[in-house]
Design a protein around this nucleic acid. Structure first.
Ligand SMILES: [Zn+2]
Ligand SMILES: [Zn+2]
Ligand SMILES: [Zn+2]
Ligand SMILES: [Zn+2]
Lengths: 141, 141
DNA sequence: TCTTGAACCTCTAGTCACTAGAGGAATTAC
DNA sequence: GTAATTCCTCTAGTGACTAGAGGTTCAAGA
């Protein structure tokens, strides 16, 4: 049986976060000692490692919940895992392309000013409006 | 003099967000009608456009506040604008490179399963731990 | 067995940048 | 004059945590 601190050290998940996952229902409520402290078993540890790895892959908690519910599933049900992976991949690619156009605009803006600053700063000016930008760019998330 | 709805329509910034910017001190408190409704002038409109464009470039509100305070600045002070731009650019590049390694892992994971699902799903398995990943990947933001 | 210090408990609130909704007042158009 | 639209303030919710307060329990050494 492991304490919450042990779980934390072995997964890099901070203690309040482990409790937060419990609140959200991602981790089952563990047994408690007579003094009310949490005691985990190996299954809980594996589950937390699973959650942590999915988070490191950028999955939102709702998707992780979905994946966890596939524990012990078989056949067609498992296709849900593929769907989640592909949705996440598509989302990721979308974000990368947005960030790249942001990068393009920002590097252009950064280079716009000669640094003399007699009257104005071209960087500051370029921040102020979209009219000089080469293309569209939206932060979005 | 413009109403808040007019500002919203002309900037794509939602009405509650405009009020939120006022609360945060990014927009000055505007004049009010006898009936307590906000009325803006052209300066406020330009300021909101500035804020909106900076947000679309991914700048956090604190940096936008910094840029707005450079209004009317000259000389060396304006270098702060360059600093903000370059910090944002560096941050952006860092995020892009992280997202790219995420993308690499996820596309590998996505292809890992043949879809037969007799016993297990390789996608689900790959989500569960980092041991099969090619390299490091951290979501971070 | 006792003591001490580390680890644990619950609960609240803060982060960022908004967004939604309730319940009511003002404005505008006809 | 009335009805539709817009506006007001205020509270609370989002996602995924994180920090801190104030108190309790555990484990190890003396
Ligand atoms: Zn400059
Ligand atoms: Zn632009
Ligand atoms: Zn599969
Ligand atoms: Zn991995």
């Amino acid at each position: 049986m492991f304490s919450i601190g042990y779980l934390s050290r072995h997964t890099q998940v901070k203690i309040p976060t482990i409790r937060f996952y419990e609140d959200k229902g991602l981790l089952p409520r563990p047994d408690r000692t007579a003094g009310n402290q949490r005691r985990y078993d190996d299954t809980a540890l594996k589950r937390l490692i699973f959650i942590r790895h999915c988070r490191d892959l950028g999955l939102p908690l709702t998707d992780i919940e979905g994946l966890l519910s596939l524990e012990g599933a078989s056949g067609r049900d498992l296709n849900q895992a593929h769907e989640i992976a592909e949705r996440q991949l598509a989302d990721l690619r979308d974000r990368i392309s947005r960030l790249r156009s942001l990068e393009a605009e920002l590097s252009r803006i950064s280079k716009a000013c000669d640094g003399k600053h007699d009257h104005v700063c071209a960087v500051l000016h370029a921040f102020g409006g979209h009219s000089e930008c080469a293309g569209p760019h939206t932060h979005l998330k």
